[in-house]
Nucleic acid binder design. Structure first.
Length: 142
DNA sequence: GCCAACGTTGGC
DNA sequence: GCCAACGTTGGC
């Protein structure tokens, strides 16, 4: 079981849209970056992730679960790109903003803070625990 | 809307 | 294989 973070501009794909997809989830299409793709290739069914709203909101708003391992991205014919399928698990009771993460002890090395342009990133177990705490949730998956 | 950071492309 | 040009992301 590993932890991840998925970024999306809410204008393009929001948490509410993700929730509306229900248990069938949604393909995380459109990633055209090797590092982000490699992170998706490393995912297993059952892995959990944060859902982050970039640009608008700049906050972690929900938790998602990987329900299919990486497979060809249906939005391109380019065989280099593939993606997982994720479903919404639950919203955060309190969204956790980027600003909060920046000043929160223990999150200094979080990719969200140090690697702003990476759209799919790993989250350590310690980071997962801290963010869940800030969100007002019992740590899920631990 | 600007721009810094950074990833990718392609000429050489 | 280097690096300049270019494109994109995402914070501000």
């Amino acid at each position: 079981m590993k932890f991840w973070l998925f970024k999306s501009e809410p204008d393009a794909w929001s948490w509410d849209q993700q929730v509306a997809k229900g248990a069938s989830g949604e393909e995380w299409t459109g990633v055209r970056n090797y590092q982000a793709r490699n992170n998706m290739r490393a995912m297993q069914v059952g892995d959990l992730g944060f859902f982050y709203h970039s640009n608008v909101g700049k906050e972690i708003v929900g938790i998602v679960e990987v329900i299919r391992t990486s497979a060809p991205d249906s939005t391109t014919d380019d065989p280099r790109w593939d993606c997982v399928v994720i479903k919404a698990v639950c919203p955060l009771r309190h969204p956790v903003t980027l600003d909060t993460c920046k000043v929160q002890p223990g999150l200094e090395a979080m990719a969200l803070v140090t690697n702003t342009r990476l759209s799919v990133q790993p989250v350590s177990e310690a980071e997962w625990r801290i963010v869940c705490g800030l969100a007002g949730l019992d740590p899920i998956g631990l």
